[in-house]
Amino acid sequence: MSNMPTESQHARGQTEPSHGAVRTHVISFAIMIVLTVVAFVMVGAGMAPWIVVPVILALAVIQVGLQLYDFMHLNQRGHSFPAFFITSGALLGLIFIVVLVLWP
């Protein structure tokens, strides 16, 4: 807070975010829609659960990765702490779920 003036000097060299970002976001979005449609269609088509379940879970994970890395800017530099906390939360959450499912 007190060092705001010095901070701003560094930020002066900031580049305008490129318009390419919009294209990336739209492509990510298109992929998400496709993945969602695939998941819905697989279930709607009544395929065998032992194929469908792992596939739709994998599709969900890919979608979430897109959200985190593209929409939430986790791909940008200086995001190691955010990445650490969100992965820790996800990992521990997964442990909670697995243990509760195995030994309810």
Binding site: F81, P82, F85, I86, S88, G89, A90, L92, G93, L94, F96, I97, L100, V101
Partner: peptide, 19 residues
Amino acid sequence: WVFLGGECALFASLFATYL
């Protein structure tokens, strides 16, 4: 972001409850 890490644990608990 840290808060969202905690939210992961929150929703994981709800998912575990549901499952």
